[in-house]
Design a protein around this nucleic acid. Structure first.
Lengths: 111, 111
DNA sequence: TAAACATACCTAATTTTCTTAGGTATGTCA
DNA sequence: TGACATACCTAAGAAAATTAGGTATGTTTA
């Protein structure tokens, strides 16, 4: 993913998108993130596909492969477990965002 | 660093602290972050020292070693180059925080 | 109609950045 | 004196990315 800072946030992005959209396929996810961020964030396929496989292996995502014409698409959706755990992913990310925002904007040199 | 999500943000945290505090030594940085975040973020020394050495190698930080009694402290501060580049580090992090906040809170499924 | 580009999946080698688990040495406090 | 804090460090391994491919179909354009 470009923007450089992301390491660790890809899983959370995927899970959030699948919370909002029920099911999505890999390529669709890359396009959606590009669209939502006005091109600022770009998920590379080399990062995304292994991440999807990992989340499936963990039982957080499940897949359903469908043929669209002559093309095949692998749709990902949250499992029951994934829906439960998504809350923790969001909380952890929000906590990080808050702490980081505080470190950047807080008046850190008052002492 | 604990919290799991941070990968990539350590450099920015260090540079921000050195923007506010002129000069700090390694151990002081770990304590300061713990203090500022109420113990939520903990920078491990195994992550910090290599990061400091890397930033020094890049010409972003410079060091001055001082003896405090029989103890030695290695003080880090921003170089001229480091001060210039710090702006970009902050901008990039802020942009990430904004985008991420939007992805988490934005109404992503209106379409 | 052939070339280029978009869609759609994937992997492997390498790099970056972290965790874990040490090591060394001095200072302080119970 | 033994534990804990201060203060520096490194090395092995894991995790998650980048980079650079590969395969195949569908669409657009020169």
């Amino acid at each position: 993913m470009n923007g450089k800072i992301f390491r660790g946030s890809l899983d959370t992005i995927v899970i959030k998108l699948l919370t909002d959209n029920k099911e999505m396929y890999g390529y669709e996810i890359t396009q959606k993130v590009k669209e939502l961020t006005g091109g600022t964030m770009n998920i590379t396929e080399g990062a995304l596909y292994p991440a999807l496989h990992k989340l499936e292996g963990k039982g957080i995502l499940e897949t359903q492969t469908r043929s669209i014409g002559n093309r095949m698409r692998k749709y990902y959706s949250l499992t029951k477990k994934g829906k439960k755990e998504s809350v923790n992913y969001m909380k952890e990310m929000q906590s990080f965002l808050d702490q980081m925002q505080f470190l950047l904007n807080g008046k850190n040199n008052l002492a």
